[in-house]
Nucleic acid binder design. Structure first.
Lengths: 232, 232
DNA sequence: CATGCAAATAATGTATACAAAAGTTGCATA
DNA sequence: TATGCAACTTTTGTATACATTATTTGCATG
């Protein structure tokens, strides 16, 4: 497959592997070998290696000396770290956003919210749910970009990537899609009203509630595992 | 050179290229070709490519479609973004550090400060200055790690990497080595005293003053360039 | 002398070959 | 049967070959 497509294979490889991790196809902690991925993606090792390197930088896989990569463990510790960081950075982003937001920006944010609602109403498939989650993350990305600090936007993007596994759990297992949509709308309203306090407060609350919901899920899961082992 | 050293060549290649960028050997904006680097580092393209990918993720080089990479432009915008983000994240890190710091940690921090002083007294060479800057960054890294949020530590590490070019300018051109040492000692003292307010305040002030000093440098440089062009 | 186009050159994207290390299997032995 | 060791297999690390696209060079032409 020599040089046909426009965008480099490493990009599509990166996206493909990332999707496998986020959706759980590649289980946390599992070792991933280059050749397996080559088989699945039908590309050579070079793009796969480069994709894995990027994923390592993203924190989705970890390098193990001389034995390639393993999917990172998504555990409570990581959850807390990611979400606590998001509280800090999203607060900052929201503050900057309120300072810089234009009326056009608000229109664009609301459009995104509406698209989310539409999707929720019209497409009940899993594919639609995944898309809805992505739109929700896009909202956060867009807010982050309003402040004009591109680096902040990039960092938050990185955090969102790490959140995906968790948020997917939350949305699907706790069925909090509508909660998320409502939260998002409230945040946008506060930004539109140029109310920094309120916007930041709602942002923090939104993230903390997500975190706590998922924490609960993880704990339930752990308890089940423990009782299973104790029975056995 | 097949498989001799212990650590992969991509790591040393990464460090080597990073050093070239930080010290200005590879000028901002300049395109870097793989083969040039292969020549200089005496390795094949594979490790160089992987190093460049990592550097891209670090934000030290940017990818240009189908034409490899270029060293990123270190301009005022980037300076403001990086340092403003550091104000946020270092504040958070300091807060967490004060909450979690043990007496042993304090000893270790003070040891780092002393090492810095020693170096300043005993080794006036450029190599020693570079080392001193690195020790200063290590101090920030160590403080970031006290809080226990590894992700925060990693993010700050990334920001510090992006800072290096600027800080090097500041330290050498404004000769602020002693200022930095003093700042660092004050921050550690506040942490040792478990005084969150003070520690955070000193952290912010330290970073903001750096930022403003370097901003001045960049503006002087820009003015010089403009007057040069207007004369020509 | 400037300019545009074609050939030459160089650089990236991808695949693959080969060496070294890690991991696995299976057999011999206690 | 358990265990240790040796051969085999797999996997990574590195180098390199080849195809394709970008860049440069140089010449012809206005």
């Amino acid at each position: 497959m020599n040089e046909i497509s426009q965008s480099p294979l490493r990009h599509s490889a990166y996206e493909a592997i990332k999707a496998m991790i986020v959706t759980g196809q590649l289980a946390p902690g599992r070792r991933v070998t280059e050749l397996d991925l080559c088989d699945q993606l039908q590309v050579s090792r070079t793009p796969v290696r480069e994709a894995l390197n990027r994923l390592q930088r993203d924190g989705l896989v970890v390098e193990r000396a001389r034995t390639g990569f393993a999917v990172v463990q998504f555990d409570e510790k990581m959850l807390r770290e990611v979400f606590d960081l998001r509280v800090e950075l999203d607060s900052y982003a929201t503050r900057l956003a309120v300072e810089n937001v234009t009326d056009d920006d608000v229109v664009s944010l609301v459009a995104l919210l509406d698209k989310c609602d539409d999707l929720a109403r019209t497409d009940p498939s899993p594919r639609g749910r995944l898309r809805e989650m992505e739109l929700g993350m896009d909202l956060h990305r867009q807010i982050a970009q309003l402040g004009g600090n591109t680096l902040l936007a990039e960092m938050l993007d990185g955090l969102l990537v790490k959140c995906q596994v968790y948020v997917w759990m939350e949305l699907t297992q706790l069925d909090e899609f509508s909660v998320a949509r409502a939260d998002h709308r409230l945040i946008v309203e506060a930004i539109a009203a140029r109310n920094t306090e309120l916007a930041v407060d709602r942002t923090c609350r939104h993230i903390r509630q997500s975190r706590d919901g998922i924490l609960g899920l993880l704990q339930v899961r752990r308890d089940m595992r423990e009782s299973y082992f104790s029975k056995a």
